[in-house]
């Protein structure tokens, strides 16, 4: 076993902090009696978080990312397949990059 004690401490602290963030939102929201507005807020979170993950990658990603994003969206819209969208998106960006388009 090749584990440094300070490194282990850092890893354990990271684990505690990360679990606290994972459990904290559920814990808080389960305890509060949520108003209608709060429920609308919770309802909006998935879309808003996903957009926040995706938008910087796509918008600042250049033509290859724009085309691959459009292709993935089209496949998802027509087929509803996540796997299909993933394969087409990756294939599209790979093809464009190999053509020198970034």
């Amino acid at each position: 076993m090749d584990v440094d004690s300070t490194t282990l401490l850092a890893i354990v602290l990271m684990a505690l902090v990360t679990y606290a963030t994972r459990a904290g939102g559920l814990w808080l929201a389960s305890r509060l009696d949520l108003s209608e507005r709060a429920e609308i807020f919770l309802d909006q979170i998935p879309g808003a978080i996903l957009i926040s993950l995706v938008a910087p990658v796509v918008i600042t990603g250049g033509p290859a990312a724009w085309a691959a994003a459009a292709a993935a969206a089209l496949v998802a819209w027509r087929t509803g397949s996540l796997l299909g969208a993933m394969v087409v998106g990756v294939a599209c960006i790979l093809a464009l990059r190999s053509l020198g388009i970034f």
Binding site: L53, V57, M86, V90
Partner: peptide
């Protein structure tokens, strides 16, 4: 192109939402 795999999945999920 694997850096784009997650982005593509997120986009597909967004389409459903």
């Amino acid at each position: 192109g694997l850096d784009f795999a997650f982005t593509a999945v997120f986009i597909a999920l967004l389409v459903g939402m």
